[in-house]
Design a protein around this nucleic acid. Structure first.
Lengths: 349, 349
DNA sequence: CTGTTAGCGCGTTCAA
DNA sequence: TTGAACGCGCTAACAG
């Protein structure tokens, strides 16, 4: 590892300064009181030799690394990127670095990756783990200290930081309902995504609360292309009366809007579209995309706060869920008059 | 670090299996030939005790970590995110993990961060370092093995992986010239960005090659907002005859297009706009954004290839520059007739 | 083929 | 206050 020119050790410094290794160590850590004269000589020797303590040796002695690992299903996801950035900055403030482990959505490698990553770090962040719950519980037990992001684990002894997707979707449905929409479509995300399941729960709750509404669920995806390719599906839905579409996330929504525009469908004139995450681009789209804002960096910082407590031997802090903030923009508007009339007609039928 | 239940060591395994630590070690690493009977017993004990070797101890004895660090000025930059992802995946294939260190554009902390990060890893990636060249050379000498991304360092003993921004800009100018544009504007990026300086060089070369052309340089930035806020500047330039704008990157271009649209300026009807990087969103913008494609993941993989060679004691491989591929899309078109006439008039004057 | 021994570089007792 | 000695957990020599 970081050996300088040829591996100058604490022994070299001690010899150069004419003192014992112990003294050098003391000066280095400033723990005990050391004779000022010794201190100066040691510091001089350190500078002269360009010495820096071996991180590996320290790790062995201390049993820690000052490094944490973040396991994520897809580093290309803006949400995870934001969390990583927030986590990295927050941890750095406490002298910790972050190791990334991208499982590239290979669910069956997640467990091994997590164990391996944990093994070389002091703690772990499992970001939106895709693995089945039983397995996850087992993993979580073995890799503590650990914080889980965006996944429920009732009763488990783990801090959880996440987003209240149920509320988010419900808020969004309220917004669309308020605009007059009664027949919606939801474009789902990756099947193994727990946060997608949460969104679906939001959909169910919303329908339960508004029996006069109907929300169809269609397969979607998580990236721009997925949304782009879902346009045909959406148009089919529209023919069956859907007036607004909620996408799994902004990327899907943006891709969808692009394709709709190509096909001559006016958003929000003919169809309303909304996303999730409020990525920076959402504000800059045409039309500006209605979305649910999620504090990505803040999530990362919160993860670190919980992890730090755990590392310090503190208790498992409470789950914290951020409520997405609805950002109503141009892409959602009242349904077209024709659709309203049709719906009214259906009601009468 | 990753101690299991209570720190079960190789000694415990040896005792449990009734053999020496050395034998356990041999079984673990499969280096030498070991009696099949021993192998079975050791493996049984390992399983029984749930033993896993200490990464710290291994590091100490081997002098390596199987970890590399990537220092980056801004984890929020899509280019760096893509490189990180590519690097992480490529390195993982060889059993290496990546540590991230985001300096948040604090140039004066870059050196210390690099040294610190290097000290706990086997090698370093300096991604678009902002620090002055003198300092960079010094750092690069001290942290080897290291690979530098997106920065020239003539004569230095370091592999460099980057993008040929000069060619990129020149290709883009050719494209615009071919469309009939003669008066362009360039929206610059962060002042400390070396790749911005390269782009500027491309601008100069292009002008030298086309004396009939003129390219104004304006301050810009690197994010969506920067482009959004540059719209007024761009409109001013347009009044002075500019018919096409090249932005530092796609984010700036996209932000700019959004604002222009708000202001009723038609792209590319009134003004052509082009970006750099070809982020996924470029293809989905309205109009689709002409950009210069940069293989982000491939860059990361190439960085790892060079770093791996270095770690293995191999030579400093040659610099590799990827030539951006022009992706002509809707946002660039021939200049408006009025502008052409005006330019022609100016020519005659 | 196996066990014994000696470090890797550092922190931390324990005497002096 | 300082120094000598030991141990962290593992691998790599060297004998047997």
């Amino acid at each position: 590892m970081g050996e300088r020119s040829r591996g100058v050790t604490i022994a070299d410094v001690a010899a150069h300064a004419g003192v014992s290794q112990a003294s050098v160590s003391r000066v280095l850590n400033g723990k005990q009181t050391v004779d000022p004269g010794i201190v100066r000589r040691v510091q001089a020797s350190i500078a002269a030799l360009g010495y820096a303590p071996s991180a590996a040796a320290r790790s062995l002695v201390h049993g820690r690394n000052d490094t944490i690992a973040m396991v994520v299903p897809d580093l290309g996801n803006p949400l995870f990127q934001g969390i990583l950035q927030g986590l990295s900055l927050a941890a750095a403030a406490d002298g910790y670095r972050v190791l990334v482990a991208d499982t590239a959505e290979r669910v069956d490698e997640e467990e091994a990756t997590a164990l391996e990553a944990r093994h070389r770090c002091d703690a772990l962040v499992l970001c939106a783990p895709r693995m089945p719950e039983t397995r996850l519980r087992r993993v979580v037990d073995r890799v503590a200290p650990v914080v889980v992001v965006n996944r429920h684990l009732p009763g488990a002894d783990v801090p959880i930081v996440g987003v209240d997707y149920v509320r988010g979707i419900r808020d969004l449905v309220e917004h669309l309902h308020g605009l007059g929409h009664r027949h919606l479509a939801y474009l789902g995300g990756p099947p193994s995504s727990a946060s997608n399941a949460e969104r679906l729960r939001g959909v169910e709750e919303a329908v339960a609360a508004h029996p006069e509404m109907r929300i169809d669920v269609h397969p979607g995806g998580s990236r721009l292309d997925d949304g782009y390719e879902a346009a045909e599906t959406v148009l089919g839905a529209r023919e069956r009366g859907v007036t607004a579409v909620m996408a799994y996330n902004d990327l899907v929504a943006l891709g969808l809007m692009t394709r709709l525009r190509e096909l001559g469908v006016d958003v929000p004139g003919d169809l309303s579209v909304a996303g999730f995450d409020d990525v920076p681009m959402a504000r800059f789209a045409l039309p500006r995309l209605t979305s649910l804002s999620v504090p990505r960096g803040e999530l990362g910082a919160q993860v670190w706060a919980r992890l730090r407590t755990l590392i310090a031997g503190g208790p498992v802090e409470h789950t914290v869920l951020y409520r997405p903030r609805l950002e109503p923009r141009e892409s959602t508007a009242p349904p077209p008059a024709t659709a309203t009339a049709a719906a009214a007609g259906k009601d009468r039928a």
